[in-house]
Amino acid sequence: MSPLFTPLKPVAPALRTVLGIACFVLFFLGWGIATYGGFVKPLFLASPGDTLTAGIALFREFGFAEDIAVTVWRVFAGFAMAAALAVPLGILMGAFKPVEAFFEAFVSFARYLPASAFIPLLILWAGVGELQKVLVIFIGSVFQLVIMVTVIVSGIRSDLVEAAYTLGAKRDGVVLRVLLPAASPQIFEALRLVLGWAWTYVIVAELVGASRGIGHMIIDAQRFLDTGQMIFGIFVIGVIGLITDLLFRALNARLFPWAKGR
């Protein structure tokens, strides 16, 4: 076993898959023992079977597919708005120190503000419609992403920039032909991570004034103490997040093959 735990030594893809599946198996095994063994009352934690039954009922009787579609749209709309602003701004801040000096203090201040605290203001400004929910996700994502992109771009090796100037590159060429290609794989990775954070804000966004969505369903289930429906809704978010995470990883490897193994 000791060779497997060599620091920073890569794991074979097949072994990685097996270990990942084993973790899920142990999780469901522990969940089943806790519920079917009577250690936890159903009022507090539904069993895996009851959760699956509740999920099937959600799709058949309550149109849960529409709730999923609405929530996915909200997350990706807010995330797309955040990425459209944060990525260019982060690149400029990382590449040009005066731009960083101008924005850094404000962005560092704003990223500590909880997105949920803006909900009363957003309701006042945008009502309780879709825009309010998308803006909650936008606020929760944009400032974190700006900082991450800035750190990535500013961390590009200086010798690459110096070599470009030596070969006759101009300022725009250095940004477009050196900094961007070098930073793009990590920026894509930052987008993957922040998308995960965006999913954590959607439930908060759907707490107020929502008539559809996964968060709305979870709150309704809470009123009836239906832990099966609540757990199923949480699992659906996790499954969607896992799928998008895997897609981001595959797309990153395909778009930026030069970064493989970094």
Rank of each mutant, 00 (worst) to 15 (best):
T17S: 15
V99H: 15
I33D: 09
L89M: 15
P181G: 05
M230D: 05
A110V: 12
S108K: 10
T200Q: 03
G32I: 02
A65L: 11
G90N: 00
I214N: 15
A86Y: 01
P185F: 08
I147D: 00
A12P: 02
G215M: 12
F143N: 01
R177N: 03
L29C: 11
V153H: 00
W197M: 00
A77M: 13
A198R: 03
F106Y: 10
I68N: 05
I33E: 06
V107Q: 05
A190M: 00
R223I: 03
F39K: 05
R192I: 01
G90L: 00
G129A: 09
I203G: 01
E61I: 05
I156S: 04
L19F: 12
L160Q: 04
F109N: 04
A190F: 01
F102W: 09
I137H: 13
G213F: 01
A65G: 12
T51S: 10
G78T: 13
T166C: 12
L26N: 13
A22K: 04
A110K: 13
A126L: 09
G55N: 02
P88T: 00
F143L: 09
N252K: 14
S47M: 15
T244N: 08
F39G: 03
A83E: 07
F248T: 08
T51H: 02
V208T: 07
L242W: 14
A57G: 15
F44C: 14
G215A: 13
V204M: 06
L247S: 15
D50S: 10
V70G: 01
G55W: 00
P7M: 10
V204W: 01
V40A: 08
V204I: 14
G209F: 09
F64Q: 06
L242G: 06
V72F: 05
S116T: 09
A164C: 03
V72P: 00
A105E: 06
Q132E: 04
E206F: 06
Q132Y: 05
F39D: 01
G32A: 07
A190S: 02
L89C: 03
I123Y: 05
A34D: 06
L15R: 12
V178G: 02
T51Q: 12
L15Y: 06
I139C: 08
F188R: 11
F109S: 08
A205W: 02
N252F: 09
Y201Q: 05
G215L: 07
P42H: 15
A57P: 06
W31D: 09
V208K: 07
A259E: 08
V142H: 03
L207Y: 02
A83T: 13
L122T: 06
K97A: 15
P7R: 12
M81K: 12
I240C: 03
R212S: 11
D67M: 11
I139K: 11
S116Y: 11
A163M: 08
P7A: 06
F79A: 10
L89E: 09
T53V: 14
K9P: 04
R262V: 10
V134T: 12
T200E: 02
V239S: 02
F138I: 11
D50E: 11
G233S: 07
G78F: 15
A198C: 03
G55D: 01
R223S: 10
V70S: 00
F59H: 14
V128M: 15
A34R: 03
D67K: 02
L246W: 15
V149M: 00
R262T: 12
G155M: 08
W125L: 14
I123K: 12
S141R: 02
K260N: 03
